[in-house]
């Protein structure tokens, strides 16, 4: 296990504290090239925020990290390991589904439309993957779920169905559901874009708490204020490439690329 990690580190030059490591990530759909070589380093315990106009490939890149989308080229390592492949010599073998699922289970993902299981209560949503995928006893899973729900401030909603909750509450439950798998990293795909303005704050607050507790996070967002306050690095993507990256405060205050400047002037 750790053998594979140290081998990958030596071979690809992965830093010791790397959680997400991307080099030359490409993705094509037929003729359309959505990602044209993306490099990214997200150290453990840090928060990377990705901004950019729609169609810039930022969501596609995020979905490549947990192999919801197969890469067309380049490499992507999470915790110094490939997610969808096993490296043997110079060949990347696609792994069997059960192994892919095991590795995916360690990467949490949040969606713009929350995607809570609508036929299950909040509690059932939280214990579904731990009990089914990890085979944790139900009672233990419930105890852990209660702790998580208290953390996102929804301990009183255990028996509610998703449709009975506001958007902000649903997204907080979704965060708790992802946390129930004790992931190494959380991916956020525009987590507040579908929310009414007055509900954005409560979700950002939960994300802030997570970041402060040392969770590694990759956040695709339009919330520039959040990126400035919480992000350790800010990445601006456009046309399938990373145009500019840097420390959020400096980059927002004085963007170097004219494209970044133009985008920021439109969203700020």
């Amino acid at each position: 296990m750790s053998d594979v990690k140290s081998e990958n580190r030596a071979r690809f030059g992965v830093p010791a504290d790397s959680m997400v490591f991307a080099r030359g990530v490409r993705k094509t759909y037929g003729q359309l090239e959505v990602l044209k070589g993306v490099d990214l380093d997200v150290p453990e315990g840090s928060v990377a925020c990705i901004i950019g106009p729609s169609g810039s490939g930022k969501s596609t890149f995020l979905r490549c990290i947990n192999h919801l989308e197969k890469l067309s080229g380049g490499i992507l390592l999470v915790d110094s390991q490939f997610v969808g492949y096993d490296l043997r010599g110079d060949r990347l073998h696609e792994v069997k589904d059960d192994l892919l699922c095991q590795r995916r289970a360690e990467i949490g993902m949040l969606f713009q439309s929350f995607n809570l299981f609508s036929h299950m209560t909040v509690m059932e949503n939280l214990i579904e993957a731990p009990t089914q995928v990890r085979r944790i006893p139900i009672e233990q899973a419930k105890t852990e779920a209660e702790v998580l729900l208290r953390r996102v401030g929804l301990a009183d909603k255990v028996d509610r169905y998703p449709r009975e909750l506001s958007g902000g509450q649903q997204q907080r439950v979704a965060i708790a559901r992802a946390m129930a798998m004790k992931p190494k990293v959380l991916l956020f795909d525009e987590p507040t874009s579908a929310l009414d303005p007055e509900l954005v704050g409560e979700v950002l607050q939960v994300m802030r708490d997570l970041a402060e507790s040392g969770m590694t996070m990759v956040v695709v967002t339009h919330e520039i204020g959040f990126a400035r306050e919480i992000g350790d690095q800010l990445v601006f993507m456009d046309g399938g490439v990373i145009v500019e990256r840097g420390a959020p405060r400096e980059m927002i205050a004085s963007p170097q690329s004219p494209r970044t400047r133009e985008f920021l002037s439109r969203v700020l």
Binding site: R104, F117, R177
Partner: peptide, 24 residues
């Protein structure tokens, strides 16, 4: 989005079908 979220949680195809898609 339902099966996508289940995939992201590490559920295999058959489990998603049985526990998420078919019940809904």
């Amino acid at each position: 989005g339902q099966s996508e979220a289940a995939s992201a949680l590490g559920m295999p195809y058959r489990m998603i079908l049985k526990r998420i898609t078919l019940p809904q």
